[in-house]
Structures are given as structure tokens and as C-alpha cells.
Simulated scan of single mutants.
Amino acid sequence: MAGGVALVIGGGPAGLMAAGEIARAGHKVILAEAKPTLARKFLMAGKSGLNLTRDEGMDAYRARFTGPVVARAVADFGPAEVMDFARALGVELFTGTTGRVFPREMKASPMLRAWIARLSEAGVGIRTRWRWTGLRKGRQFLFDTPEGAVTLTPEVTVLALGGASWPRLGSDAAWVPMLTAEGVEIAPFRPANMGFSIDWSAHMTPFFGQPVKGVALVTATRRTRGEFVISERGLEGGGIYAVSAELRDGSPLALDLVPDLSIEAVAHKIGRISPRESQSNRLRKALRLDPVRLALVKEWGRPLPAGAEALARRIKALPVPLGAPRPLAEAISAAGGITQTALSEDLELTALPGIFAAGEMLDWEAPTGGYLISGCLATGRLAGRAAAAKMGL
């Protein structure tokens, strides 16, 4: 097959978005997906409610994304545009108190069904179980399909194959050697939005699965409120994910277990309790620490200082002995991928003219909370529009 056809490889949000943009411009599109069904990671994200985007000011929103190319994409397709896109698919939305935007149904599947139906109506040819296996002469795409080997020579191509996190859902980075062989610069993948290993003592076993609430996480550069979970493997959850990039890159972590009180106020409260009481009782009575926070004090704070002020300082800056980041296969997303220097402003691969890339294939990071999905939608839209423009009218 040659000329006149656009090829999109990858059936996640970035690929679906790119395919829709190209079809809307009046071009024929083939969408190839290696898995039996589309958007598996999107559906998995929807199990916890599908946080589509974050309704906030554009300056704060853009600051959440690394990389100038992705920043440009989200500037053109920000929270308002993401919400309009979802509503156009018939999805009713609501915004939570923190600005997080969700479908009213708290599910991804209705939105995905409507999205696929729209693409089919636009003439997008969806091919599942089509695994990309090779690239010849920078233009011929080889696939392993249920009908055997297939070769396509499209006019333009958008690659949206995901990064290297959650490989069981399709993002296995099998594309890396194929693009590297063609001279595309790719930064090594590293886990992002991930937990960290902790070498727990036996006394922490009863607390596995328990949330830690009402604390502040303090890194080398910032202080943020957040909730996380104690697991058998270590620390996980949104509060940890929010600072995970900095921790991965070497920042220490401390916990402020009573962030609404000053050191002086904490010391005063502790000082009012008789020193004849055990340290645990003094902290429980003075500060009303719940069992989980008390357990963390015993785990990481010993030997506890005897003086009220020194003990207050320990409670306000409890050091966390982080182990290694959890591996890529467990991470929500990945840093690394196709570098900014390997791309044009329109996400075209400079080493492979006519081939564009979008989504988690690109080297960018953003926290959880709607930013990852929004970034994939925005880059898919940008790549799709640029590919359509290259095809002409």
C-alpha cells in the first residue's frame, strides 16, 4: 500500500487523538494496535475514576510538564480544551475540590466506546493484533498480523506506542531499537510517578496497606501536603508520586507529622505531658498522633530525644530512609524516550521525515492528577495535525 494513507501505530489516547485529527482533515487513516483491544492503560487508569485533567490556571498547569515541545502542545490544548473534547463525546464531567476533573460515571469505558465510534464513523480503519516489527528504508512499516506479515508504505505516520511502564498493557518499549537504528536519539527510560522501597522492621507488618494522612513531605526544594500508603514493599501513593522525580534524582525526604503546628507549639504540647510517661504516650497524648504516625516515629525516629524541643524537631522532620525507586514495570509512567533534540516543534522525527511521535514515547514528565492523560491528548493532537498538514489538502 503506497501513498495517500496516514498510519497511526498505537491505540492509546495519543494515537486515538492523532488518528481523529488526521481523519477530520479528510485523509484516510489506518490505526494499528498490537493488543486485542484499544487503550488498555487508559482503561486501567479509569478503574480509579479516570482523572482526565486538572482545572487550574494555565501558568500553573504548564509548569507541571517538562520539555518545551510538550509544554507547547499543552499550551494549545489545555484543561478547557480537554474538557470540551470529553463533553463532545457525550461525557458528563465534574470537578473535585482539588481541581481534578472526572467523568460523572467515574469510568473510562463509556468515553472510550464513544471515541472509537466517532473514529469509525470518520473512516479510521482500526486494526488490532497488528504488531509493528520493523522499518525498511525509513518508510516501509512491517507488521505481524493475524493474517500474516503485512507491509505498509504510508504517506505519513504517527507513532504513539507508549513508554516503558506497565509493559503488560502494551507499553513495552520494543520500538526503541528500531528507531535507534535509524538515528533517532532516545534517552534511557527511568521510572516516574512510582513508589520507593523501604526495608521495614517486623513491627511495621500490621500497618501494611494503611494510609498515612495529615503529613507534609519535605524534599530538598519543596514542602507539600500529601497522602501515601505503607505497603510491604515500601511507600506508594499520590503524595510520594508527587515528589518522586526529585527523590529519584537524589533528594532526601523527611516527614512533618504535624504540619499545622510550629516546632515551638509542638515542644510546648509535649512539655505539658509528664516525662514519666513513655515517649509513645507523650506523643499520643500531646499531639494526638494516630497509630500509623506513631509507628513511623518508632521505625525511623529512634533513639528518640528526651528533651521536648529536640523531640519536637524530630517529629517535624522525621528522616525517611528511602531505598531504590520501584521498577519501571510498576511505575505509573516513565521518564526518558525520544529526546527534544530529535523532534521538530511539530513532533516530526528529524531523522525520519514524515514520521511523527506523540504521547509517552517522548522524553517528558508530569505528575499524576490528570496531567499524564492530558499530555498524551495534547501531543497526539499536535502530531496528528502536523501529519495531516504534511499530507496537504
Rank of each mutant, 00 (worst) to 15 (best):
P353N: 08
P353Y: 09
G354F: 14
I355Q: 02
F356L: 13
F356G: 09
A357L: 12
A357N: 08
A357H: 09
A358H: 07
A358S: 08
A358I: 15
A358E: 04
A358C: 08
G359N: 08
G359Q: 05
E360D: 11
E360L: 06
E360I: 13
E360R: 04
M361G: 08
M361K: 09
L362H: 05
L362C: 10
L362K: 04
D363I: 00
W364Y: 10
W364P: 02
W364E: 01
W364L: 02
W364K: 01
E365N: 04
P367G: 01
P367K: 00
P367M: 00
T368Q: 03
T368P: 07
G369T: 03
G369I: 05
G370W: 01
Y371M: 05
Y371K: 02
Y371F: 15
Y371C: 04
I373V: 14
I373W: 04
S374P: 05
S374A: 12
S374E: 09
C376V: 15
L377T: 11
L377D: 06
L377P: 04
L377R: 03
A378E: 01
A378T: 01
A378N: 01
A378L: 01
T379D: 03
T379L: 07
G380P: 13
G380M: 13
G380K: 12
R381H: 09
L382I: 11
L382S: 08
A383P: 14
A383W: 09
A383K: 07
G384Q: 07
G384R: 05
G384K: 03
R385S: 14
R385T: 14
R385L: 15
R385I: 15
